[in-house]
Design a protein around this nucleic acid. Structure first.
Lengths: 192, 192
DNA sequence: CCAGTAGGTTACTCGAAGTAAGTTACTTGC
DNA sequence: GCAAGTAACTTACTTCGAGTAACCTACTGG
């Protein structure tokens, strides 16, 4: 099997095993066995257990960014950007809860570098949102825009977790909830 | 040394070591050595590495709940409860960043049961907030109140993390940011 | 048909979680 | 004042899983 294909297959299996067992309890031996390959191959391609985890996270990150950007491409204004972006996020995690469980703490992410990687994903989200807010009102304080962006990301992530306990709340309703609270708050603050 | 005192001392050391190294990299041997005791004592009192972590989290949880309840005891209304509660939280983490790092993902919490324990802390917060919201407006949908509570907790936690990168933003300003966005959003929604 | 290399394996080391079997010293009943 | 019990503690292991060294096999190009 060619290298690229094998690497992708390893990520598929690793993502599933990490999600099933949690990072710590997942063993490289099991991943190797389920890939149908011997352990040193994993080390050949990903260097370490941590490296394999980073690989999984990185792929999820790329995927999420790509989807979000596509979703907000045709937005008609700041509010619309925020709404479409939120919806894209909630849909991403609804469809990909395998990768999503790598991004929330329940996957039991362990290693500092992995946390940095995940923080990078959030940073990419907050940067986007801060830019939207600043675009909406150029007079807003930069640090305040940052704070608002963090609030949006925090709300969203938390609500996504909550949605798992509330299957009746789908991506659309979740988006509505966040928009109702946060947009009203941001717009009220900035507009007034 | 009496058992209770030794147990408390173990939590102190463990909290510090977990925060310094992360859960995975922290070794029971090191914790035992820094306590000035042999490893089986840790196992005698906490059963496992995971049990020791749970002990740390549990103590932080108890402490946080106690402080929050004291803080909101003299509140004059729903908005005041929310504000005082937020302030208590931000102050707690400003003072106790040792325990706080156990509650955020950077401590690299690993084990499913630990995550459950941490989720329990959040649940205790969301329950409190949902009750406040319901108290503010009895006509509000129960599930919507839950969603709002999750939004508040998510915002708050995220903003707390952000504050670490922004030392100039103290507990008071952080509270203002959350209140400005979220309360305006909640009050707007419920009042209108 | 030989050389080089991509893709792979077996069989180890080593570090850290967890444990079995004891030891010391202090209290308590007689 | 001393035997008995027990609370606090230790040494010396086992086990399991991450990571590695060294070796193998088959295909491709000259």
């Amino acid at each position: 099997m060619p290298k690229a294909q094998r690497k992708a297959q390893m990520l598929d299996v690793a993502e599933r095993v990490f999600a099933e067992r949690g990072y710590l309890a997942a063993s490289m031996d099991e991943i190797a066995e389920r890939v149908g390959v011997s352990k040193p191959m994993l080390y050949e391609y990903y260097g370490s257990k941590e490296g394999l985890l980073i690989g999984c996270i990185h792929r999820a990150r790329t995927d999420l960014l790509e989807r979000t950007q596509r979703a907000i491409a045709g937005a008609t204004g700041a509010e619309d950007v925020l709404r479409l972006g939120l919806l894209a996020f909630f849909r991403f995690i609804a469809e990909h809860n395998q990768s999503w469980s790598l991004l929330r703490q329940e996957a039991a992410v362990t290693v500092p570098s992995a946390v940095e990687e995940i923080e990078g994903i959030r940073r990419q989200q907050t940067d986007l949102i801060a830019a939207v807010i600043t675009g909406f009102d150029r007079d807003v304080d930069a640090i305040e825009a940052e704070a608002f962006a963090e609030i949006v990301v925090g709300s969203t992530e938390r609500l996504a977790l909550w949605c798992e306990r509330r299957p009746e709340v789908g991506p659309e309703l979740a988006t509505d909830y966040v928009m109702e609270v946060v947009w009203r708050g941001v717009a009220g603050r900035l507009g007034g």
